[in-house]
Design a protein around this nucleic acid. Sequence first.
DNA 1: CCGATCATTTGATAAATGTCAAGCACCATC
DNA 2: GATGGTGCTTGACATTTATCAAATGATCGG
Lengths: 230, 230
Amino acid sequence: MRDSEVEIVRSLPLFSSMAEENLGSMLAGSFLQRFPATVVLFAESDLTDFLHVLVEGQVELYASVNNREGTMTLIKPVATFVLASALVDGAYQMSARTLETSQILMIPAENVRKAMRDDSEFAQKAVMELAACYHGVVRAYKNIKLRTAVERLANYLLVQHRRQSGEGEITLPVEKRTLASMLGMTPENLSRAFSTLKPYGVTVDGADIRLEKLNDLETLAKPSEFIDAR
Amino acid sequence: MRDSEVEIVRSLPLFSSMAEENLGSMLAGSFLQRFPATVVLFAESDLTDFLHVLVEGQVELYASVNNREGTMTLIKPVATFVLASALVDGAYQMSARTLETSQILMIPAENVRKAMRDDSEFAQKAVMELAACYHGVVRAYKNIKLRTAVERLANYLLVQHRRQSGEGEITLPVEKRTLASMLGMTPENLSRAFSTLKPYGVTVDGADIRLEKLNDLETLAKPSEFIDAR
DNA sequence: CCGATCATTTGATAAATGTCAAGCACCATC
DNA sequence: GATGGTGCTTGACATTTATCAAATGATCGG
């Protein structure tokens, strides 16, 4: 592993306060790998070999039951994923695939578990990271359980608007079918949800969305601090 | 706090390997409190004052949006709840209320965070517990996102059957309206879901359910190791 | 530029789920 | 045993969401 790669790892809160020597031994046996788009990285039933760090590209965590499939979450660089699975030494519980060409740093799960035992600073950070992940899924669970499809879309648009701060303009960061799956609906239904939002000032041009009546949209969406990400 | 109460705490995996002195100082300022049924313990927006240990009774964690309300999970003794919130020092993120008369041990969240810093054994256990909670919500999320109401009920019945091992007979551990909320549907819809399952050998007599065609029910339910609790 | 492929949209329809209202059953209390 | 409350069920209906099919639009390699 190159120094620049170690720097990337070090920049993540999870690893920031780890003792130099522990970081080094954890990264021994780690490697950076390049994947093309649409590649399945692992299935939910696979045993967790690696903690993953997405360095570049985009990854989708998803789950399947029968023939149905649903997006659990999308990972953007730079971020770790499947930390919980790596720590407990069991199955991944979710499947993963690349959405774009991606670079992923693979850290042997065994090393991560050893680091947790040896480095108490790291254990602390792991606790905080896991707690944040937990609340993240709780939010997603509330979202799908307590809101209609149109409300989920409206709130998604508002969150994106806040993040992109584009003054009434946002660009969807993923294909619409992926967005549909993330929001728990079919692509057809997403398309109709956009139509439903037209009276609330939402106009669609491909991946470019204009929000011209933010107040009206908020009235419909009724965003909640305890569901919608900051 | 009495010795018997300390014993209860000690019996939980989370606290089992904690140093005696750290356990003692964590429990300083803790107290056992008795609540009647239907009492709200905290709201999702409240700051997390306490890690809770349900010693007796039953507690519902729920969330509300607008006027809608949904059960997140049910807690049975002996178990801790809101560990993640206690560790991060923020809002509870979920509301809680007693379903029955309950005894709850309240441990100041500050003490828990201190214990995590001071006792590395405890930090390890907290990591494992949080990872388990995380996967628990992930399961719930998959369940609601990828299954229909009838499938969720069918799988719930099969899980209960496994747990109660009643040879084709189970007793619902909660009121049907609570079950409905937990399974993400209205009471009316739950009632109809039971009717739908009649051809699959499910007969209902109040809280007593008979499952007479387990194979047929499994064929419908298509249980999954990665959704349904053991 | 052409053709092929894929994503998206639209329409028609079906299935799933929620809402409202009424009735029933059970239980507690008087 | 009457009374009232509560939870559950059922029916009628509305809404939401999914499915299937087809049309449209975008993209990419040749």
